[in-house]
């Protein structure tokens, strides 16, 4: 069926298979391939994007369910002049990424978290990111990055 979505500010209508997952719509139809698929079970969060401003796992949303909605992916996060979003900048500064596979989803999950809780404690950061797996960093620097992005000193 037809879906009309606004992805990173760009509205478009596409004909898609009913069963198409949002993540595959973004990757294969929209050509936005930063968002990755890391599991089959809604566990890893690598595919996290914002749907109408809220974080969702795009492997567990049908593309047709995004009809008429706004989707934000990591590709749309930096400013037009290339300036990194504070979360992106903090991830770089604190070495919150290594292989980069979890990163787009992790960053979007952090953006969503900070929108709801602009100055989270370390405990709240960990609690808020429980749906995102990372195999490289041991999460240590991801936590630091979120604290830095929220204007706090991670010590």
């Amino acid at each position: 069926m037809q879906v009309t979505t606004t992805v990173n500010g760009e509205a478009r209508t596409d004909e898609v298979e009913d069963r198409l997952l949002l993540v595959h719509y973004l990757r294969d139809v929209r050509g936005l391939r930063a968002t990755n698929v890391g599991c089959d079970t809604t566990s890893c969060g690598a595919c996290t994007v914002l749907l109408d401003g809220e974080s969702v796992k795009s492997c567990t949303v049908l593309a047709v369910q995004a009809d008429g909605r706004e989707v934000s992916t990591v590709e749309g996060l930096a400013a037009a002049d290339g300036t990194l979003h504070p979360v992106q900048a903090a991830f770089r500064q604190e070495h919150g990424l290594q292989c980069g596979f979890c990163t787009p989803g992790m960053v979007m999950a952090c953006v969503s978290l900070l929108k709801d809780n602009p100055r989270p404690t370390e405990h709240e950061v960990r609690d808020g990111l429980e749906g995102n797996f990372c195999r490289c960093t041991g999460y240590h620097n991801i936590v630091r990055a979120v604290l830095v992005a929220s204007g706090q000193d991670p010590k």
Binding site: V74, E75, A78, G82, F91, T103
Partner: peptide, 20 residues
């Protein structure tokens, strides 16, 4: 020294085999 790799990984994403 912060990583030179990161701006790409944080914006357009890396290009893994599936992304080629």
């Amino acid at each position: 020294v912060v990583r030179v790799e990161d701006p790409r990984l944080l914006t357009t994403g890396a290009v893994y085999t599936e992304d080629l």
